[in-house]
Computed example of a mutant assay.
Amino acid sequence: MTDDERRAIEADCQRLINLYVNLSDAQKWEELVALYTPDARFARPSKPDEFVEGRAAILEGFTARPARAQRHVIANTVVGVVDADHATAFSVIVLYLGEAAEPGELPAMSAKSPLVGTFTDKLVRTADGWRFAERIGGLDFRP
């Protein structure tokens, strides 16, 4: 693999991670879940040892949550290229939460905000581009 090929994989994987948090904040759950492989595993930062497996179950988990205001900030992402079709990534995440607000109003921030944690990812190249095969969240501080 050339340096340019490795950098292209890193950029594609970084874009996938950024797109994920943007779709999450917009609560576009079906688009977000399409970023996973059909048999992917996901563990929320608040429950890193409890895996939800498969797109349908991951979608159900997101849509079952009550609406809320949220904004993720993702940083310090390092992508490790395993080979042309596999990569890993580690990112630090900050999550600001609030009550859902009326249209045109700003939400009040939750007393639990911000939450600081991480995501550790296994990424694979598919016919549809790079996707999450596994995404494990974790918290670094108690809320």
Rank of each mutant, 00 (worst) to 15 (best):
H86A: 12
E53T: 15
E53G: 05
A89R: 05
A57E: 13
E53S: 15
R71C: 12
R68W: 07
F90K: 13
V79N: 02
A84D: 13
A75S: 15
A84N: 05
A89V: 01
S46G: 00
A87M: 06
G61N: 14
R65F: 06
H86L: 02
V81S: 00
A89E: 00
T88H: 09
V73T: 10
A57Y: 05
P66E: 15
H72T: 02
S46H: 00
A40N: 00
F62D: 03
S91H: 01
E53C: 11
K47S: 12
Q70K: 08
A57V: 09
A89F: 02
A64W: 09
F62Q: 03
H86K: 11
I74D: 07
R68L: 14
G54Q: 08
G54D: 07
P48M: 04
T63F: 09
V52R: 04
D85Y: 04
A67T: 13
V92Q: 10
H72Y: 03
I58P: 01
D49G: 13
V73S: 08
R71T: 05
F51T: 01
A40G: 15
P66K: 13
P45E: 01
A43S: 13
D83S: 08
E60L: 13
F62A: 04
A64G: 15
S91G: 02
F90T: 14
Q70W: 03
S46L: 04
P48G: 07
R41A: 14
T77D: 06
V81W: 00
A40I: 01
N76D: 12
R44D: 07
Q70V: 11
V81K: 04
D83R: 02
A40K: 02
R65Q: 15
I74S: 10
I58C: 08
A75M: 13
T63I: 14
R55T: 05
E50H: 09
S46R: 06
T63R: 15
V78N: 14
A56H: 12
A89T: 03
V79M: 04
P48E: 10
D39R: 09
R71Y: 03
A84I: 01
V92D: 03
V79E: 03
S91M: 07
V81L: 09
R71S: 10
K47G: 01
A69R: 03
A56W: 05
Q70P: 01
T88Q: 11
I58F: 12
R65Y: 06
P45K: 01
D49Q: 12
V82D: 13
V78G: 08
R55S: 02
A69I: 03
A84F: 05
D39T: 14
N76H: 11
T77A: 06
D49M: 10
H86Q: 12
A64F: 11
H86F: 00
D83A: 06
A89P: 05
R68V: 12
A87H: 00
A89M: 06
T88W: 02
